[in-house]
Design a protein around this nucleic acid. Sequence first.
DNA 1: ATAGGTGCAAATTCTTTGCTATTAA
DNA 2: TTAATAGCAAAGAATTTGCACCTAT
Lengths: 163, 163
Amino acid sequence: MAAQAAGAGQAMTDEAARSLEERCAAKGLRMTDQRRVIARVIGGADDHPDVEEIHRRASAIDPGISLATVYRTVRLFEDSGLLSRHDFGDGRARFETLHHHHDHLIDITTGAVIEFQDPALHALLRRIADELGFHLVKHRLELIGRPIDGRAGGANGGKRSPS
Amino acid sequence: MAAQAAGAGQAMTDEAARSLEERCAAKGLRMTDQRRVIARVIGGADDHPDVEEIHRRASAIDPGISLATVYRTVRLFEDSGLLSRHDFGDGRARFETLHHHHDHLIDITTGAVIEFQDPALHALLRRIADELGFHLVKHRLELIGRPIDGRAGGANGGKRSPS
DNA sequence: ATAGGTGCAAATTCTTTGCTATTAA
DNA sequence: TTAATAGCAAAGAATTTGCACCTAT
């Protein structure tokens, strides 16, 4: 089987959070309380929160954090190569830590996001770019699908459905 | 060769414009002067203009057309299945008529958009969705690439660089 | 000490909408 | 005729920014 669902069962609630903080520090970023909290929130998320959701979760830990700071921090982390930003079709940007490479399939009926990875796909994309005379720097890909009757939610390994 | 650049040399300045107008009428849309002009602009474009650019080009033909009308028309055409909307990373939405299926590669150095189509890619995407338990409804894909030295602009068949 | 960060509110940017006058069918 | 449309300006939603005050390093 080429494509396999990924990202469902990783135990990353605390470990990845700390490593995001670590990676921030390693990048030489000034670590304020706010950034630490935001890093923990994003690193500990197993979904793809938008800025407001990150702010909501961060506020639960430290009520003083402003939305502007979340925007600034998320931008900073992205520019530092620690986060990736996604556009799932609703107006807002969604974020996740940059762990293993994967792409997303969006359930058109629920909005749920399923992660998958497929080496053959990446090889093909690289080859296509190459044939057009380009070195593939990165790509944006979302599949939009409708569950096949009978095996609908099966691939969605316990992921919270994002509204 | 699997992927081939497409969309560069089609003679569509007038023919596709008329056919977009025709398709609008065929869909039962009320054809106002504004819609006719906007249809001609979009149908005649060989690039991927955003709303402001469409408005600019439409205004050159009929100065009375408002931006709001362009937004409404573009939305209408999209909902009628006559247009596709793209997000190339800059904030605004880009549009093009829905002709043959293709995807886009964006030159990271210039922002130029190269169209390509690759049947093997689409087959693979369908298969991936299928393996995850989904019927592939549609997909969003952009490759971001850097020209390989020596054969840089070669694949870009006379396409206007979109700022 | 001080360059850089934060909060707040105001500003931007892209897009949608309420309302009245206009028009295609 | 009359329901749908256009223009205009005001409203929204997401994101950015100016400024005075704080704080990691």
